[in-house]
Amino acid sequence: MILVFCELKDGQIRKPSAEALSEGRRLADAAGKPLGALFAGASCAGSAEAAKYGADVILTAEGPTLASYSSDAFATVIADAVKAKGATVLLAAATAVGKDMAPRAAARLGAGYASDVTGLSIVDGKLQAIRPVYAGKAFATTTFASAVQVATTRPNVFPAAEKPGAGVAETLAAPVGDFKSVVKEILAKASGKVDLSEANVIVSGGRGMKDGTNFKILEALADAIGGVVGASRAAVDAGWGLPHSMQVGQTGKVVSPTLYIACGISGAIQHIAGMSGSKFIVAINKDSEAPIFKLANYGIVGDLFEVVPELTKAAKAMGIGKN
């Protein structure tokens, strides 16, 4: 069996999990194996949706010990499910939870682990992964030495495709015990917006923004086109009051949106490493020689303080972001 750990939010499968599940279906077909979707929580209401993405079996573990996330409780559920089902491949999305739990579960299973993969295939019956290294400056083709193979899939890379499966429901026991580290509180999010790593459109500002307060023009553009605002390391380290969670680059977030608009970003190697996986790149910079233009599908040589508000205006005039 190929088993995919899935996360629910407000009773729905999270998009990165739906992507992992769809990739799991593709691999299951290639390997001639069934696909299992695995859920854990106080309630797994909504898990039936996994059938839509091709799950043959939907495994749910419900119980009070799974109400709050804890790495060892979740790793226990997952490792036990892998053993019980004789699964050879375990996938999860490379989300905050996925990246916390999957390596722990892999170590418990004595399994090799490939994180944040952007490509998966079955070669001679074994899983093979392609994953970005050096923040996307290179790609490593990775094979597994272990019988069980664990991987997390990078959000926004694998398409979520609907392909109905039998979706036979099966319940698993929730783990009992005293867990070593538990999430006690979810702190209020700054906004209801998606995280940079999952965003489809990113508007990013660099040193050319001159001050943190000027990022409001990027916010306005992002709002108009359904995007999220990011920043370069130069901007985050400039002392403008921008949180490091906004940072895109090798020492920040590595992103792969459909559209990345770089405003006043020259294109340092470490920034490019974090965003060169974007499908379309737009660069807006005063300096026509800025290295960022080498990557850009569309370049605008000009003053971002003039161009960005015009973009917002043009997007609104053309009804972008309304559908």
């Binding site: 939870v97 070593k180 538990v182 979810i186 702190l187 999010k189 790593s197």
Partner: peptide
């Protein structure tokens, strides 16, 4: 740090 926010872990 989590997606777009943060959480408190105790252990």
């Amino acid at each position: 740090e989590t997606e777009g926010g943060s959480e408190i872990v105790e252990g």
